[in-house]
Design a protein around this nucleic acid. Structure first.
Lengths: 245, 245
DNA sequence: CGGACTGTTGAGAAATTTCAATGTTGGTGG
DNA sequence: CCACCAACATTGAAATTTCTCAACAGTCCG
C-alpha cells in the first residue's frame, strides 16, 4: 500500500491522516492469479480497487474475439477499475464506493488527489488514442516502451535502462491495436535499429534519445512533475548497436 | 448553463444550492469562433472550462502534421479541458481551479458529480481506444454516429433519427484515425447499406438496429442510466433503402 | 519426452493511405 | 442574378502498411 500512497499526491507526500483514512477504507484485500478477471466486464460494481502489486490491464473483447487492451495498471499506481484482468499475480485492495463517498466529505484534499489521478488516467488515454489513430506500428511500440520506462522509473522499478514488462507480445499487440505477427516484426525492427529490445518480458532501452524521437514521446501527459526531467537527460545512454541482420 | 447543470448529476437533478455554487464559480464567459484554440496546447492552465454551447474537440498535432482528435465536446456536456479547438462558435465558461478546490471542501456532493463526469469521460476514451485499435473503418464511423445519437438525444438535440454534427469529413477522419479519402468512402458505404447518412453536417440514421450492430455499439459506457433504454428500441425505424448506385 | 505457450519467419490477401484529378456547394462581390 | 472562389466531397489508381494463414523453432515445465 505504501507505494500507492506515495504516488497519489506526487510529488507531495500524502498527509498521515489521509493515508490512514485510505487504509481504513479498504474493506478487504484479494489475491488474483495471472489470467483471472479482477472485475468481470458488464458487472455493475459498488467498489473500487487499488492494485497493490502485480500487473493488470483493462480490456474489452469484441464479438470477433479480438481484444483491445485500453490500459495497463502498473504496480502501485492507483486505479479505480472495471473489466480488468490480471497479467501477473496481483494483490488488490477493495474500497467500497460508500467509503469513497465519505472521503469526499471528510477529506476533501484526499478526494482531490483521487480525482486528479483519474484526470491523469484520462490524459494517458488521450495519448494512446493519438498513438492508435495516427502513429505507425514502430512509433506505437516505441511510445509504449517510453511511457512504461517513466511510469516505472518514478516508482523505482527500473534498473539502468531496463525494466520488467510482464506481458507477452500478444498482449502488446492487443494494447497497440496490431496483429501479433506485426508486433513481432516491429519488435525486431526496434532491436535492429538499436532503439530498444523486448525479450524475456523485459524491456531494455538502448538509445533513449532516438527511441523518444521515433515515438514522438513527450512525457508531460503523464504529469510526473519535474521528476522525470532530472532522469531522462541522464538516461541518455550511448547508442548501442545490435545489428543482428 | 442550465443544460449543463441538468446533465451533471443525471438522472437526478442537481440541488439548487450546488447549482448556484457552480454558477458563482464561473469567473468569466468567453466566446470563440470556429477554428479558435480554446486552450492552446502545452499551456499550463489554472482553470477549467465548461462548454455552454457550440461544438469543440480536443486534439493533438503530430510533427508530420497529422492530427488526432481525442474527444468531442458536445454542447452542454461538462468538460475540463486543454488543447481544445472550437469546431463551431462556442461560448465557454471559465472556472478557476481554486474555485473547484473550494467546491471539494464545501460541496462534496457537487464535487463527486464533477469527479464522476471525468470518470465517464475516461470511459468514453476507452471505448474509442477499442474502436481505433480493433474495429474496421465502417464500424468506427458507425460507432461514432451511434455515440453521438445518444449523447445528443439525452440533451434533446436530435430530431427524429437525425442530428447536427457540425464537423467536416476531414474532422471525422482525424477523430477515427482514418484518411480523408477512406472516411469519404466509408460514409458512402454506410449510406449504400442503408445504415446512416452524413451530409450537410447532419447525421441521419436509417436503421438504428443494424447501425448499432455494425458498430458493436453497447451504450452502457456512456453511463446514461436508463434514459436511452427507453429511447433506443422505439428509435428502431423501418429500414430505409437508399441505393444510389 | 510431450505438450503448451511463446516467438519467429514467409508469403499472399486485405485494408487503408497517398497522390492526383474532378465535382459540388455555399457564400461573396460585382 | 451571375461569376467566381474557397472549402468540402468524390472518384480512380497505385503504393504501402498491416493482417491473415501457415509453418516451424525455442523454452519451460510436469
Amino acid at each position: 500500500m505504501q507505494r500507492f500512497l506515495e504516488r497519489l499526491a506526487w510529488p507531495d507526500p500524502l498527509p498521515e491522516g489521509e493515508q490512514n483514512r485510505l487504509i481504513k477504507s479498504v474493506s478487504q484485500t484479494v489475491l488474483f492469479n495471472a489470467g483471472d478477471e479482477i472485475v468481470p466486464a458488464e458487472t455493475p460494481v459498488d467498489f473500487s480497487s487499488i492494485i497493490l502489486d502485480g500487473f493488470c490491464c483493462r480490456q474489452q473483447v469484441l464479438k470477433t474475439g479480438s481484444r483491445q487492451i485500453t490500459a495497463f495498471h502498473v504496480p502501485m499506481l492507483k486505479t479505480l477499475l472495471d473489466s480488468a484482468v490480471a497479467l501477473t499475480a496481483c494483490r488488490v485492495a477493495i474500497v467500497p464506493h460508500e467509503r469513497l463517498r465519505e472521503i469526499t466529505i471528510v477529506q476533501p484534499h484526499l478526494a482531490r488527489m483521487l480525482w486528479k489521478s483519474t484526470l491523469i488516467d484520462a490524459s494517458v488515454y488521450r495519448q494512446w488514442l493519438v498513438c492508435l489513430g495516427r502513429q505507425s506500428a514502430l512509433s506505437r511500440l516505441a511510445h509504449l516502451f517510453c511511457e512504461f520506462y517513466l511510469r516505472l522509473e518514478v516508482v523505482g522499478l527500473t534498473k539502468q535502462m531496463s525494466y520488467p514488462l510482464p506481458v507477452t507480445q500478444s498482449d502488446l499487440s492487443d494494447a497497440m491495436g496490431l496483429s501479433l505477427v506485426h508486433t513481432n516484426r516491429t519488435c525486431a525492427q526496434l532491436r535492429q535499429k538499436g532503439l530498444a529490445t523486448f525479450a524475456q518480458r523485459t524491456v531494455t532501452i538502448h538509445d533513449w534519445e532516438r527511441l523518444q524521437e521515433a515515438a514522438e514521446f513527450e512525457p508531460e501527459y503523464l504529469h510526473l512533475g519535474n521528476h522525470h526531467l532530472k532522469l531522462c537527460p541522464q538516461a541518455q545512454i550511448r547508442p548501442a548497436l545490435h545489428h543482428s541482420t
